[in-house]
Design a protein around this nucleic acid. Sequence first.
DNA 1: TCCTGTTGCTAGCAGTGCTAGAAATCGACG
DNA 2: CGTCGATTTCTAGCACTGCTAGCAACAGGA
Lengths: 194, 194
Amino acid sequence: MSIQQRRERERAERERLIVTAARDLAEAEGWDAVTTRRLAAEIEYSQPVLYSHFKGKGAIMAAVAVQGCADLAVELRAARTAAKGTREALAAVGRAYADFARRRPALYDAMFTLATDLPFATSEAPAPLKEAFGELLAVVEPITADGEDTALLTETYWAGLHGLVTLMRSGRLPKRAHEERLALLIGHFAAGGE
Amino acid sequence: MSIQQRRERERAERERLIVTAARDLAEAEGWDAVTTRRLAAEIEYSQPVLYSHFKGKGAIMAAVAVQGCADLAVELRAARTAAKGTREALAAVGRAYADFARRRPALYDAMFTLATDLPFATSEAPAPLKEAFGELLAVVEPITADGEDTALLTETYWAGLHGLVTLMRSGRLPKRAHEERLALLIGHFAAGGE
DNA sequence: TCCTGTTGCTAGCAGTGCTAGAAATCGACG
DNA sequence: CGTCGATTTCTAGCACTGCTAGCAACAGGA
């Protein structure tokens, strides 16, 4: 019984090792550098070991993404609770979101741009994912106008943030004036539509 | 002299053939299906011929993207000129943009999501690209509030649209309520910030 | 000490983008 | 008309990818 438990513990430990190695490697050299061979070398095991833990490379990236969502949720919460008013909270969380994407681009990609089979918009979505979205929801709720749906408005605000960071990082928007664009987005949402 | 010209003509023709074959294949089966071998077979030439026209696969995708921008510009212009008022124009162009992304996902990816070395935010950007952005600019200009920069506001509006379509298509936003989210975005921009 | 079942490995498959060097083609000229 | 020379195009291959079949080594139990 105890032997079995120890083995499972070691196995879980190795699984964590894989995920963190993938994240570190991706953050250091980008996802293109994260090959199964390279990852196997990093954890000092052979390639097929990865497949005894995850269905494939995509599943490893999904695990990294979930972990990333937890990180993001923490940062968004910190920004939200530190802000004074409702409008300041909206702005602070928006800035924290953009800052997260700027500081950790590879992690952000795994979470929100690269193809994933992770359930997002359903009730089976992983908890960290819901938490991160919940932080956005919490700051959008107070600025929701009459007749507007808070959830939908949050999704729309999120989309605005996501568009800004992705277009900028792919070089499709100039890096300068990023702050101004962010302020415009926040301003237009805080002001209320219709 | 004439022989030289005919050769260049045929060469240009074949280059167009490559680009359209890449676009068609991508739209039919996705960019993953567009391999250099497959593309070569499609145009009935051998693989290395592609590299006598383009630096690599990325350059072919960039060419497809530029063509796609021209298509998008046409559709946005049609939506803009058909709309009555300034607010209606903003909404019509936004809807046309989202509709383009929905109808031609592979083309949209090549233009706005996949990595590209295309100059976007500079003055050397290809003309079709500037045209498409110009259409957005034209509908945002009238709704720009005092003290706001039209170009920056257009970029922000674009980012909002881009975020909505990409998050939805990757399954991160539910497909339902897409119209409502779009309406929220348009409403909040038309209303003016601050 | 032997047996058995699990675990992790080596080796390999089918595919990718890309390229060096051979082969074929075609216009120009004797 | 036939040959040469240059350009064009192809064959074959490299180094790499994600992934897997099947073998070896090692563990615990009898």
